[in-house]
Each structure stands twice: as structure tokens, then as C-alpha cells.
Design a protein around this nucleic acid. Structure first.
Lengths: 347, 347
DNA sequence: CCGAAAATGATTGACGTCGATCATTCTGTC
DNA sequence: GACAGAATGATCGACGTCAATCATTTTCGG
């Protein structure tokens, strides 16, 4: 009770030397099966857990992770950037260095350049907001071939190009949005207008697919209008939504991409507004919720995703199976009543 | 870039000895203001961060935290217990020991006994699911007086009795439930039946208050029926709900406490059910969502709460301001579409 | 300018693990 | 039973910090 067992205790209990216990623990080989069994049993009965503090210290392991993000100013990726910055002191204390590298636009060529610039001698892991262009996949596969662990963040690509995807299930998010808006209609007929950012973007397409699926299956009395495309430009969003509200107002709007600012502007002076669900909790959507201009926000919680990606990279780079808690990356639903407190982020 | 600075580097940069830098860093006193300033500036410019691995190792700090939970079998506290168990390996690697102590029922006397049993020589921190009985407050204040950090978990008590409360804002949860059910009615008139566990329980009372507040303010066309009380007993819940559905079916039900199993039973064969929001995502409520017997679940995410409570205790016991990330303890809203994956918990 | 108190420097042995090296003992084979 | 090869034991110096101790220097009031 009073003292946690050390590896020396394990060795003693197993009746072997520290060296042998160490060989078993770190799978160094050259250990008789019988000895290995004794050690493992001792570990089991003593409840030995390797002291990560001492281990990391000794290993003199300092890791450097590079995070590749699109350089889009403002909006969602600004939030991601802020989340990364807030992780820095915490990770520094764990001797993990974080570097952010930006690539212009969502340009695959620029991204590939950044990927190729990752030197395995310096970088122990890469988290990348990917696009699924084939050249990006190629570059990532090559990077992994050089022994650098890769995870995709927020936006996925070919599974062969990464060890894991850390991000929201966008299909599920679309489904949830559909259920919310469906229930909000309470059985009445009506049409829902999806406002898309970019139909070619994987996340947006997934959300729309999930949305359609649930409306068709569970709310057949509702119809999904042809989505309008905004290219994530607030001005275009405002124009499109204003036009839609003027001609034949839909019963609800599902805003799938960015550009919430434009949406809010369009709603500002509408006498009776449709039910509205948007994505990403930022300053704009938050305020819109509080002012009752929209009904719900679906958020992917960038801070949690960044933390999870870094934990994952640490485990990958480390090789050893470290204890970890499963993170909940489920789409979160915010109403004006369950908003988290502000904490200096939110662009 | 290549190497994180050590305290020796800081000392060199500041032009003082390691000893002096150490005295500044650990506030040991006997340092001239001028030297302290130099050291602090060096820390700043070098971006020095104390290596927690080495620090903890050297300090040979092993902490033991005790968690005091009601022994109620099954249901919510079983989930909490599971969350704690899942934290054990992770915390063990951080040389933190977790002990669970159960007290029978919600009996204040039993709880006080457990609180008094915490020996400051052995226990470095206590997380307690409190009740706000005055004798409990007294016992906790006394425990804190003996130098043991205390946080309340899930259920709060007098602020003087704990350093912090880690748990959901129950008023906000009630508000969110009201907004969901309000929107689900889409402007129609109707009555909502609150199914309460125990009116004297602080959490339940808070939820009901938040609920009422939003219905009255934002959905005046809806009425809140007199709550029925189930004492968190599934059988009673089933009886009460069945009776309510038979006589004058409400438009919606807000289940505030435990006993979801009884609620689901009562709903099993109802031709057209009211809109329903319940609390706590467990096996029963999860399945009910999937089978479309209820519409939404409001959850406080026990795993996150436990993790946050332990982090907080660690920081309190440690004294030093360690870097930490703010946890989101907001009430979470789950529909059948955004359920997290199962992970061996959920009673 | 003397003496006491304050400030600083220098050094040391943990803490538990890692990654070595080197010596010794135990296998099984021919 | 000799010998290679495998298995084991023993030990060492990091890693960066902490909590000491002791010696030396600086500061400052009287």
C-alpha cells in the first residue's frame, strides 16, 4: 500500500536479477520462457507499473511533433491553432515540442512541399489536416516509409497514408443535425435548405450524406432542397440565404460549412426565421445562439481533437503501449443553455 | 530548437549558480531581488519549463487520493466506479494511487465516518460525492483544516467545505432539456411532466429549476405539470409514468433522476409516445435512444469529470501551478445519431 | 569599518529506469 | 565431457530535478 513496487521489487519477487526483469519488460530477448513467465507473474501480482517519469527521463526522449495546417486566417483553423498553443506548456513539461507549419490555401502542392520538408531526424511525428489528393497520399505514404508516424486531423485522407484519423465522424454529425431539425418540425411538412461550403470537400459531403439519410428514413414528410454552395464565403452565404428567405422560405436551414457570419447577417432582420443548425462553435455562432438567431450548433471540439492527436502521436512515436483514456470525439450539440465558458479562444 | 533548456542552462544564462536558480524556481527564499529578476528573465527568454518527469521522480512524490462514493449498486455510480478503475493504470504511471471508499446509501453519518477516516499522513487528497448535510460540511472543513485538499464530485456541498466542485451545472442541464422539449413542440400548446427522483436532492432540484425557468420564459405556451417523485426507483417510475400516460398524456416528459429502466418499460407498448428527454447515458438510455423510445439524453460524462477531479487534486496537492487544459464539463446532448462508441463501461 | 545577517556558490546523493558492458553459469550437441 | 551459444547476474553512468549541507562572499546598520 505505502510504496509502489519498482522493477527491483519485481525482480526480487520473481527470483531473478534486475537485468533479467528488465530484459523481459523491454523485450530485449535472450530470456528463457520460464524466467519470462516468472517475471510476468510477479509484475501481475505486485501490480507493477513502469514509472513513466523515470523511463522518459532516462530515455532522454524529447519528441518533436509537427502539425500541418492550412493557413486560412480566422475561423476554424484559428481555433485549432489556439488549441495547439494552449497545449504547448503542458507538452513542454512532457518534453514534447510542437511546431506548427502552415500551407497556403488547401493547395495540395503546398501541402506536399511541407510534408516532404519533414526530416525524420528532427521530427518524431506529424499531424496533418489532409486533403485526399493523390499526391498528398503519396507524400504521406513516403513519409511514413521513412519511419515518421502520421495522423490526420479534422480532415482525413487515404487510410494507407496515416496511422489514424483524429476527428469527428462527419456522417454522424449530419445525421444528428437531421434529427434535430426533424424533431423541431414536430411532424409538419416542410423543406430544409442545406447551405454547403464546398461539395468537393470530403467533410461537407459526408455531413450532407448523413443528413439526407436520416431525413429520408425518419422524417419522410420533410424534403431536402438542392444545396446551395457558398465556398465558405460569408458574403456569398448572406446573398444565398437572403435570396432563399425572400422567395420561398424553407422551414429549416442546415449550414454545413463555414461562413456563419454571413448567415447571421442574413437573419438579422427576418421577422420569423426558420429553424437553424450550424457547425462549429466560434464567436459568431455562440453569439447567434445567445441572441436566438439560430437554434443549435454542432461542434467538433478542436481542443479535444488536438489533445487526442498529440497523445496518439506520443504513443505511436514511443512504440510502447501506454495507458490512455479513450477520448470522446462525438459531435457535440450546443444550445444556448449548455454553452461552455469562454476561455480566451474562439476567433 | 534541438535541446530543451535545463535549469543549469537558465543559471548560466542568468549568470548565477544552479543553486540560486533553484532557489528562485522553488521559492526557497534568501535570494536578492536583482538575482531573482535575472533568473526569471532567463527562464522567460530561454522558454524554460521545469521537467515534470525529473521533478516528480526526484521529489519521490507518490500521491494517494481517496474517492468517497455512495455504494448504490448499478446505475450512475457504477459508471463512475468504472471510470475510476480505468484511470488507475494511467495514474499509477504518474505514481498516483487511487482508493475508492464507499459509504452506504446517501447516509450523512456513514459519509462523515468515511471522511473522518482519511488520515492526512496517508491521503493526499479527497474527492467526494457530497450531500449538503451540515455534519458533512463540518467534517470536510475539519479535513481541509488538517491540510487535505478536497473537491466535490458530481454533487456539491457548502463552498467552504471544498476547494472546487467538479461536476455538471445542473441548472444549465435543466435549461437545455427545456429548450429541447420546447423546440420539439414547435409552438404547439401542451404540458410537460417532470419525473423527479428526489425533490430534496440538490442536483434534481437544480435541474427542475433550470427547466422551469426556460419553459416559463421562452415557451410560455407550454406548461409544466407538478413533478411526480420516484425516489429513483424504476418500479415507481414505471407505475407513475404508466398512470400519467393513461389518464391525460402529457406532450413531453422530462426524466430528471434515475430509474430510466422503469420509464422505458412504461413506454414499451404505447402507440404514440410523448417527446422524452432523460438524464445519464447508460446501457438502458442508450438502447432506448437506438430503439427510438426516447429522443435525447443529457449526460454529464463521468469519465471526464473523474479525470478532471484527479487532475485538480494533483494540482492542489502539488501546490505548484501546473499547466493544465480546461475541461469541458458542459451537459452533453446525445441523440441516437451522435452516440459515442461503447468501451466496456456502461452498466 | 566591524560584525552579523543575508546571499551566493559548490557539491552531493537520491529518485527509477534505460541502455550498456562484462563476467559467469546454464543448456544442449556431437 | 568439451564447447558453442544461450541465459543470467552484476554493475555503471546517464537523465534533470530536489533537498540538503557547507563554505564563501556580499551587504548593511551602527
Amino acid at each position: 500500500m505505502s510504496k509502489l513496487p519498482t522493477l527491483q521489487d519485481v525482480a526480487d519477487a520473481a527470483g531473478v536479477s534486475y537485468a533479467t526483469a528488465d530484459r523481459v519488460l523491454n523485450a530485449r530477448g535472450n530470456v528463457a520462457a520460464k524466467s519470462a513467465a516468472k517475471v510476468r507473474k510477479a509484475i501481475e501480482t505486485l501490480g507493477y507499473v513502469r514509472d513513466r517519469n523515470a523511463a522518459n527521463l532516462s530515455r532522454r526522449r524529447r519528441m518533436a511533433f509537427r502539425l500541418l495546417l492550412p493557413d486560412s486566417a480566422g475561423g476554424f483553423f484559428e481555433t485549432i491553432r489556439a488549441a495547439i498553443d494552449r497545449q504547448k506548456p503542458l507538452r513542454a513539461a512532457q518534453r514534447i515540442q510542437l511546431e506548427i507549419a502552415s500551407y497556403t490555401g488547401f493547395d495540395p502542392v503546398a501541402l506536399v512541399r511541407e510534408i516532404d520538408a519533414c526530416d525524420p531526424a528532427e521530427i518524431d511525428g506529424v499531424a496533418v489536416v489532409a486533403t485526399d489528393a493523390p499526391e498528398v497520399t503519396r507524400a504521406l505514404v513516403e513519409l511514413r516509409g521513412r519511419g515518421v508516424p502520421v495522423v490526420t486531423l479534422v480532415s482525413d485522407t487515404d487510410p494507407a497514408a496515416r496511422a489514424a484519423y483524429v476527428g469527428m465522424d462527419n456522417v454522424a454529425a449530419g445525421r444528428a443535425a437531421a434529427r434535430l431539425l426533424g424533431l423541431f418540425q414536430a411532424g409538419r411538412r416542410g423543406a430544409i435548405l442545406p447551405v454547403l461550403g464546398d461539395a468537393k470537400s470530403r467533410d461537407h459531403a459526408d455531413r450532407l450524406a448523413g443528413f439526407r439519410e436520416v431525413v429520408v428514413r425518419d422524417f419522410p414528410h420533410l424534403s431536402v432542397l438542392d444545396p446551395v454552395e457558398s465556398q465558405d464565403d460569408p458574403t456569398r452565404v448572406e446573398t444565398l440565404v437572403t435570396a432563399a428567405l425572400r422567395s420561398d422560405p424553407p422551414a429549416a436551414i442546415y449550414s454545413i460549412g463555414a461562413g456563419n457570419r454571413g448567415l447571421v447577417s442574413a437573419l438579422q432582420h427576418v421577422p420569423v426565421r426558420p429553424r437553424i443548425v450550424v457547425h462549429e462553435l466560434g464567436a459568431v455562432s455562440r453569439q447567434a445562439l445567445e441572441r436566438d438567431l439560430i437554434d443549435a450548433v454542432i461542434d467538433q471540439n478542436p481542443a479535444v481533437e488536438v489533445a487526442e492527436a498529440l497523445d496518439l502521436l506520443t504513443r505511436l512515436a514511443d512504440g510502447t503501449a501506454q495507458p490512455a483514456l479513450p477520448a470522446d470525439l462525438t459531435p457535440r450539440i450546443y444550445l444556448r443553455d449548455n454553452l461552455p465558458e469562454l476561455s480566451g479562444d474562439a476567433p
